[in-house]
């Protein structure tokens, strides 16, 4: 049974649209997929990424002991308000991506950016070995061996890096290593913006 079309021209146009619809859908899907793949490559898109619940808030109250042997002071919430933007970096010696991001942290420290470190669920002797071998980018360093302070920050893995503005408010969180791309495209501009 064929459909009686009131206007043959409209019917022809509709047929053509029906023919093109799957093509358009495939094209759009392809473009979206390509954008996702590109984002995965540059680190802009992370399918497992979850926004931090602490963005726009002050960090939780905490006080962590120093790591013996580094000569660095421990870290507490009061140390995070210095009138300058800073990074808070959770790391562990057992964490492989932490090794990847370490050179970037060292570079930032050389450029004068204040980085506060928190050693997460790591034996102090292992953290110390890690820093002795690769250098210490931290201005202060707290030891969170039970990982409880990390939970107050909403941490779900290491490394995680938080950017605090000069008022001590959390503005940005990176779950995963700060790669060279992320340093250039996100950290550096944000540090400038919140200075």
């Amino acid at each position: 049974m064929s459909e009686a079309a009131p206007n043959p021209e409209a019917a022809a146009w509709r047929r053509r649209a029906l023919l093109l619809a799957p093509l358009a859908a495939a094209g759009l899907g392809g473009a979206g997929f390509y954008a996702m793949l590109r984002g995965l490559g540059t680190g802009d898109y992370d399918p497992r990424g979850v926004p931090s619940a602490l963005i726009g808030k002050a960090p939780p109250d905490f006080s962590l002991p120093p790591l013996e042997g580094t000569g660095l002071p421990g870290l507490s919430a009061a140390d995070l308000r210095t009138g300058k933007p800073m990074l808070v970096n959770f790391f562990a010696s057992w964490c492989v991506p932490c090794v990847i991001e370490h050179p970037q942290l060292m570079r930032l420290a050389r450029e004068g950016v204040a980085i506060m470190g928190i050693a997460y669920k790591d034996k102090p002797v292992d953290s110390l070995g890690f820093l002795k071998q690769r250098g210490t980018p931290y201005a202060r360093l707290g030891v969170d061996q039970p990982g409880r302070v990390a939970i107050d920050w909403g941490l779900y893995g290491v490394p995680e890096t938080y950017l605090l503005d000069k008022g001590g408010i959390i503005r940005w969180r990176m779950a995963g290593p700060v790669t060279e791309e992320i340093l250039a495209q996100q950290v550096t501009p944000l540090l400038r913006r919140y200075a």
Partner: peptide, 8 residues
């Protein structure tokens, strides 16, 4: 837990 980890 919600306050720390968000809706997710």
């Amino acid at each position: 837990v919600h306050e720390r980890y968000g809706d997710f």
